[in-house]
Amino acid sequence: MPNHAIYLGVGQKTAHELSKLVQQNVHYPSVSDSEHLLAMPELVGVAGKRVVILRGNGGRELIFDELTKRGAHVHYLQLYQRQYRAVESAAIEQWQQAQIDTMVVTSAEQLDHLVAAMPESRQAWLKQQWLLVPSERIAKQAIAQGFNNVTNSQGASNSTLFAALQRLKTGLNNDEQK
């Protein structure tokens, strides 16, 4: 990997893993989302610069579109492929028997898949679950899809999600969206 490049990650874990690979410092925003990444000083003056976005298939086009508007020459390098599992009726029955009441969804694509894969007969049950999401954007999307209880954890790192889950389960949650 080039030594003269500036490396950025959307979140701390991505930055840490990329740093091990490139043997250089990798910067990341305090809030792990595309909007905060785009606000970083390293991405302000990018006109005429070459930018490579490492990603999986699909996903949002926000970073590509915004950096292109700022005059950067942006390219994708797909490193992995997202594959979603089918939601099987037996698994849903197990969730219900175990009295699962909270689900963690870390991307808009996961949310869309979960809703689309859930049989119509289970949609009402699904929409009553508490949903823990990493951003305001996904919280709004969940509410628009009919979820009644949504908490924005303010990030997708394991530690952030776990802390939000602990707050939620101990009644110390002030992040609900209605």
Rank of each mutant, 00 (worst) to 15 (best):
P2D: 02
L8G: 05
G9M: 14
K13N: 05
T14H: 06
A15Y: 11
H16R: 06
K20I: 10
V22P: 07
Q24N: 14
N25T: 14
H27M: 11
Y28I: 09
S30N: 15
S30W: 07
V31M: 04
V31Y: 07
V31L: 06
V31C: 02
S32N: 15
S32T: 04
S32H: 13
E35F: 00
A39C: 04
P41K: 14
P41M: 09
E42G: 12
L43W: 14
V44E: 15
A47I: 04
V51N: 01
I53A: 01
R55Q: 13
R55S: 11
N57S: 14
G58A: 10
G58R: 10
R60A: 03
E61W: 08
E61F: 02
I63P: 12
I63K: 02
I63V: 13
A72H: 03
H73G: 03
H73P: 08
H73E: 12
V74N: 08
V74T: 01
Y76R: 11
L77Q: 12
Q78D: 15
L79V: 07
Q83N: 13
R85A: 09
A90K: 04
A91W: 09
E93K: 05
E93Y: 08
Q97V: 11
A98K: 14
Q99M: 02
D101M: 00
T102S: 05
T102Q: 05
V104T: 10
V104Y: 05
V104D: 03
T106H: 07
T106Q: 04
T106A: 03
S107H: 13
Q110D: 12
Q110A: 10
H113D: 08
V115C: 07
A116I: 00
E120G: 12
S121V: 15
R122P: 00
R122Q: 07
Q123F: 03
L126D: 05
Q129A: 07
L131E: 14
L132W: 02
R137A: 11
A139D: 10
Q141F: 01
G146H: 08
N149I: 06
T151S: 13
S153L: 03
A156N: 14
A156Q: 12
S157G: 13
S157R: 15
N158D: 08
S159K: 09
T160W: 00
T160H: 07
L161W: 00
F162D: 05
F162N: 12
A163H: 03
A164I: 15
A164E: 09
Q166C: 14
Q166K: 12
R167Y: 06
R167E: 07
L168C: 05
K169I: 07
T170Q: 09
G171F: 06
L172A: 14
N173S: 15
N174R: 13
E176F: 03
